[in-house]
Amino acid sequence: MSKTLIDQFSKKLIAWHQRSGRSGLPWQNQRDPYAVWVSEIMLQQTQVATVLERYPRFMKRFPTVRKLAAANLDEVLAEWAGLGYYSRARNLHACAQQVVNVFSGKFPSDPVLLEQLKGIGRSTAGAIAAFAFHEQAPILDANVKRILARLFAEEGSLQEKAVNDRLWALANTLLPSKPEDMPVYTQALMDFGATWCTARKPVCLSGEQKCPFLNECQANLSDQVLLFPQKNIKAKSPEFDCDMLLLRSGNSVLLQKRPSKAIWGGLWSLPESSWRNKSAPGLSAKQLLEMVLPQEQTSSLLKACKNLKQSESIKHIFTHRRLWMHIWGADLRTPFEPSDPNLKWVALNHLGHYGLPQPIKVLLQKLSLIRGGDLKNSAAN
């Protein structure tokens, strides 16, 4: 391991950032830990271009941690919709309440304490501590893992605990000696991985720019840049079917609140059946109603939903699975009063107040246009 590279890494990276790093992003140069925290959570698994649009809107709606903590979870999910991975929004809300109730509305500066808050992992805790409090705390997100694995030709898969432990130790060793350098250093690490040392087209292979670590990067010197970090072979994503009930009455649609720990947890969606493997047989209309609605209401609905039929199928791709949603639609002359508190009739022009999964939002948006509703402010993903 090159002692020279370790000693010079932070200085060279900061110098690179002054020349080629990103600037002008709305969450940069922030000392407010709340603003830093929101941006870090939002940027997880979401493209910067999307966050550029949504971050200012979220901060305007919930400008302080106390405002976020006092908000209804449905409000937070509706504002988050379109960003995906909804556990992040639920954790944001829970974490805000922790900060208010346990820390009197002030984020702790110690990364160890930050990591104990809901939804904040070790790397996010390090980022908040570095940006907001100038703490000498390392980060190790996917970009940083890739940088370090290439620079030091780190063997082994990132899924292995021993590999991650070694990378954490490296990340800690490479920190700048001056606390005041922590914000720019941390931002430089993020930017370098996102724009130069990218997964598929790093600049050292394109020749468009000269990497500042060209002569020290072990992966480059051995002509193995794209082989680091080493990856496990991914299995083919499994595919599933489910049936969804699209019941309409006038200008309203029946929605169901999803369990908090399920896919799209806490969002409002169409009542749906259990997921089944693609090879499993489908459901009849009677089976679907009996599966998704309270038992005491299915018999009357079977008569009212004589025109219930499958209208279309929608394919949605998750990170690790694929789902085919088969939509069964029917119009009711008179809406029934659901006995389940998680079922609710919602007017099409009020859907903007509810967090909706992206494919369901798109489906209902088409319906809204037909019926003259307004979904312009509706949330999605």
Rank of each mutant, 00 (worst) to 15 (best):
S299Y: 10
L293V: 07
V76C: 11
D191Y: 02
I327N: 07
L227M: 10
E53I: 12
P33T: 00
V36Q: 04
S260D: 14
I263W: 14
I263Y: 14
L323Q: 15
Q218D: 14
V36C: 14
G355V: 06
L77T: 04
L117T: 04
K306L: 13
L92W: 13
L246H: 09
L332S: 10
A304T: 12
L158G: 07
D141F: 01
Q230R: 10
Y55Q: 09
K366D: 14
W168H: 08
C95K: 01
H353F: 09
R57A: 12
F133S: 05
I233G: 00
S284V: 06
P176F: 08
A137N: 10
I147Y: 05
P63V: 02
V292D: 13
V346L: 10
L351A: 07
A219W: 11
A169G: 11
N101W: 01
W268Q: 01
N172T: 12
P357R: 00
Q8V: 04
E290I: 03
Q30N: 10
L43Q: 13
K3S: 15
L367E: 15
V144I: 15
M59N: 02
R371D: 13
H326L: 01
A188H: 14
F103M: 08
R54D: 11
D374Y: 00
V163A: 09
R90L: 01
N91P: 03
T50G: 00
R321K: 13
Q97F: 01
E272G: 09
A171S: 12
Y55D: 10
D331T: 12
S252P: 03
G84W: 07
G207T: 07
Q230M: 09
L174W: 03
G193N: 05
T50A: 14
F58M: 03
K201P: 08
V65K: 00
V38N: 10
F58V: 04
H316G: 00
K361F: 14
A169M: 09
L367N: 08
P259H: 02
A129T: 01
N29P: 01
I317A: 13
Y185Q: 07
V346M: 11
K361I: 01
M59P: 03
P357D: 04
P108T: 00
E53H: 13
E239S: 10
K286C: 02
S109Q: 07
G265P: 04
I327Q: 03
N381A: 15
Q116A: 06
S378H: 04
T319Q: 04
G126R: 00
H326P: 06
Q136I: 01
P111K: 02
